[in-house]
């Protein structure tokens, strides 16, 4: 096995460059290194100006998502040696504006996330005196969606989001369903106005890449299809029982 591997890393500084370019670095090929370790080696030893996000190094903070040979990956849990003999091409997550090198602008995503109100919404003045009891079945209904870590790999994988940046997108819809399906929540109605629009669930054409790339095995594609059924029922209800809606 060769002792080094070439990393082609995207470089981009908006105030200097007109378009991104790739810079090649030679890094040690260590069996226990993740892609993120190689990037940190570059930053510490070769070029301190390289910009990228990372934090926990254990696949839970969702910061270090990048394109690795064209596939969205959490770089802290992607082994460098699986790409030997290389080279490996590292780029910023696709479909997002780039702030610098591998750092993407996530304001758009955070705005969408906020719009779907991903928290328990109560209509009443809810002050529980003890635990809110849920049955295992009630927990199971939404549990997988709680595993989302907002890493945005699903947005980088979604061709629809690439074509229409207004699309609410996989993670935000999955998190909306996480609360819609929670027996403690009463906010489904408020989320309908965001989700049932053309740019909400209806933009999705069930390509399913979001569920393929999710490092936490969440199935956002399922959440979207589930909600299409909910939205369709609501649509018929609003025509057949118009008095049902205030």
């Amino acid at each position: 096995m060769a002792e080094t591997i070439l990393l082609e890393v995207a470089r981009f500084l908006p105030e200097r460059d007109t378009e991104p370019s790739y810079q090649t670095f030679e890094v040690p090929l260590r069996g226990d290194w993740m892609i993120l370790d190689a990037l940190n080696y570059i930053k510490d030893q070769l070029d301190g100006s390289l910009g990228f996000r990372w934090s926990c190094r254990m696949g839970i903070c969702g910061s270090c998502g990048m394109m690795v040979n064209g596939v969205p990956k959490l770089t802290c849990e992607t082994l460098l040696s699986t790409f030997a003999p290389g080279p490996v091409r590292i780029g910023p997550l696709e479909h997002f504006p780039v702030i610098k090198d591998l750092v993407i602008e996530m304001e758009g995503f955070l705005g969408k996330l906020q719009k779907v109100q991903p928290w328990v919404v109560r209509k009443d003045d809810f002050k529980p005196q003890r635990e809110f009891i849920q049955t295992p079945a009630q927990l199971e209904a939404f549990k997988q969606y709680t595993l989302c870590i907002n890493c945005m790999l699903c947005y980088a994988a979604c061709p629809v989001f690439g074509l229409d940046p207004e699309f609410t997108g996989p993670a935000a819809i999955a998190l909306a369903e996480r609360y819609n399906l929670d027996s403690r929540d009463q906010g489904a109605e408020g989320r309908t106005d965001v989700l049932s629009q053309h740019d909400g669930i209806w933009d999705c054409t069930v390509i399913g890449e979001c569920s393929q790339v999710c490092p936490k095995h969440v199935d956002p594609s399922l959440a979207i299809q589930q909600y299409k059924l909910t939205a369709t029922k609501e649509w018929f209800k609003s025509w057949l029982l118009p008095w049902g809606n205030k």
Binding site: D193, Q197, H198
Partner: peptide, 14 residues
């Protein structure tokens, strides 16, 4: 017309 009356559900159901 409220936003959730987008006509997409009809096409989707068909």
């Amino acid at each position: 017309m409220p936003a959730h009356r987008s006509n997409r559900p009809l096409g989707w159901l068909a």
